[in-house]
Design a protein around this nucleic acid. Structure first.
Lengths: 348, 348
DNA sequence: CTGTTAGCGCCTTCAG
DNA sequence: CTGAAGGCGCTAACAG
């Protein structure tokens, strides 16, 4: 026995499908007697509208898609959580597509979304604006996040990585640290590049020389990089890592080397993932409201969808780019006293 | 200018829509000349098939939906990651729907999936098997995870919570601990109930009395519960928490109380979320391959979809229930030596 | 091998 | 206020 269709309902209620549609969508006016007959039939058949069919005829899916490079780590999960919240609040669904290691892959994923979503949020280090718009055959509203080489043609959001890094270094300088090293992220990564940039700026502005080490955004790479730095003849008295995962690796390396943090070496990370508040010493880091960013991204996209933004291309500088400013959170790894931290966690 | 449709392609190629459909879907045979003409037109118009329309006519969406209570914590994000991997491997998409605080809410979410997905994975502590099937008007393949009160009518997967808890207690007993307390999860929660059950079983089997405290699966509640336990006249020498988040709260409470772990109090958690390996002391806990579970769940669901399981209801005991057995991972919180742990992390 | 023609399930003018 | 009919974009028999 197959699921009931609108026609079954119409027959059972003794009305036309149009009337059923009217009471179910709330559009148009329906007399009371018919309305109740319809509702009755719906109940009896336990009818549920087929959203796919509805989408086809209304040409709106009430679904937003999100394309991301991968799903590892707390950053992405927090982001998705925020997006989901915003979607639910507006009666939308979220479809996720991840693990897009290269541009071709990501491009295919975007294409496969056609007819499935009303708009797309794209996080892809691999896709520049050109490749992106090429993937979007019929203009679909899009919001770019952390896209890097944007030409301002698309609405976008990004973190102020340069500014964040700079404020981290300034804090360390204020603490009297002078030999401040940086553990950078992977080479191709935009975030990594910008954070390193901010570091170099601030450090040279202070008249000290940059000390650079390379990492891969993983904890292990942070550990390795720090091990090298700590073994050098004149060891740094502070290390700024390009993300929290690496910063935690740095913390472990310091401990391993028999040194003390922050006494011997202060440490600063970036992102403020939940773990940052749980490790010992607590990690000083640049806080980003990740879930909030996700929520905001969906809200903007939905607004663009409603407004038909994708249909009306405008001047290049008209596509709004929103900047998120990270906030420095000082914890023990920079000498803040230990506190009863970590009590907002909701981890299951 | 709207996106090109199959008809546009057909016209430009000078063939019928059927032929276009044939080359695009790979079904049926097409002569070389027509095939290339079609491909050419597709290219020229940068045509992408409308998956919504395709779904309507094939009555398959290539999307699986997942309904979950919320999206907090590493457990769910790992689970989703695993599901996404499996979906991509089979060319499917994943649509997530979370934050279903009560049965009515979850039920509505399930209904709203009709016509949008080919099958559903449901994690809902609030929905029993009856309410669930009621929500599924036209039989949609479903896989239940951690559902609790199942009557075996639906395919399902679950963690052996009782057995896991029991093995934790046995380990502690083997360490010579005799005053073993338990910090349980929220009252209504199935997992919490089963883990407590395993604890009580093992402890009474060993001839010692249960010492119970109540938590809410959050770190803060674990801290509070442990604080109470540690203040009691005869303090426990081991604490088993129903999940890792609470166990970490316990760790902090012990430290706060000026006691040492594991010397004064040993601690065991449940789940083995990534943080468990990063906190100090490293947390002994019951490891579950969360991402693997997610992957497996999708694979089973897809198999059921292919097999048309939902169409052919069978005897009650025919609906397979798969049990995941947790594995005890011993770390410092139970006296294991500290190791250079935590180097598999991929956290961004 | 290719074109024609029904639908898939629903919404939506347009008459009545 | 209601019903009939066309169409959303595509696939799938069925003839040619």
């Amino acid at each position: 026995m197959k699921a009931a269709t609108i026609r079954d309902v119409a027959e059972r209620a003794g009305v036309s499908v149009a009337s059923v549609s009217r009471v179910l969508t709330g559009a148009g006016v329906v007399a009371e007697p018919t309305r109740s007959k319809v509702l009755e039939a719906v109940e009896a058949l336990s009818y549920v509208p087929h959203s796919g069919a509805r989408s086809l005829s209304t040409s709106r899916t009430d679904v937003v898609g999100v394309i991301l490079p991968d799903l590892f780590g707390e950053f992405f999960s927090e982001l998705i959580r925020g997006m989901d919240v915003a979607c639910r609040a507006q009666g939308r669904h979220l479809i996720v597509s991840s693990s897009h290691d290269d541009a071709a892959n990501a491009s295919a994923a975007i294409r496969s979304m056609r007819g499935r979503v009303d708009g797309l949020i794209v996080l892809s280090p691999h896709l520049d604006s050109g490749a992106l718009t090429a993937s979007l055959s019929g203009r679909l509203p899009v919001l770019l996040m952390n896209g890097g080489d944007l030409d301002g043609q698309q609405p976008s959001m990004a973190v102020d990585n340069v500014g964040g890094a700079r404020s981290a270094i300034e804090h360390l300088l204020g603490l009297g640290r002078r030999r401040i090293a940086h553990v950078g992220g992977p080479n191709g990564n935009v975030e990594a590049r910008e954070r390193k940039q901010g570091y170099v700026d601030a450090v040279t502005a202070a008249g000290t020389a940059p000390i650079l080490a390379q990492g891969e955004f993983t904890q292990a790479s942070g550990f390795a990089a720090a091990a090298r730095l700590l073994a050098s003849s004149d060891r740094p008295d502070a290390i700024f890592a390009a993300n929290d995962a690496m910063a935690i690796g740095v913390l472990l390396a310091i401990q391993e080397a028999g040194l003390r943090c922050p006494d011997d070496v202060a440490v600063v990370g970036f992102d403020d993932v939940p773990i940052a508040d749980l490790v010992r010493p607590g990690l000083t880091t640049l806080h980003i409201d990740i879930a909030g960013m996700g929520r905001r991204a969906v809200e903007r996209l939905l607004a663009d969808i409603e407004g038909g933004v994708a249909l009306a291309p405008r001047a290049a500088n008209d596509a709004v780019r929103e900047i998120i400013t990270p906030r420095l959170v000082v914890r023990q790894s920079c000498g803040a006293p230990a506190s009863n931290q970590g009590f907002s966690g909701e981890t299951t």
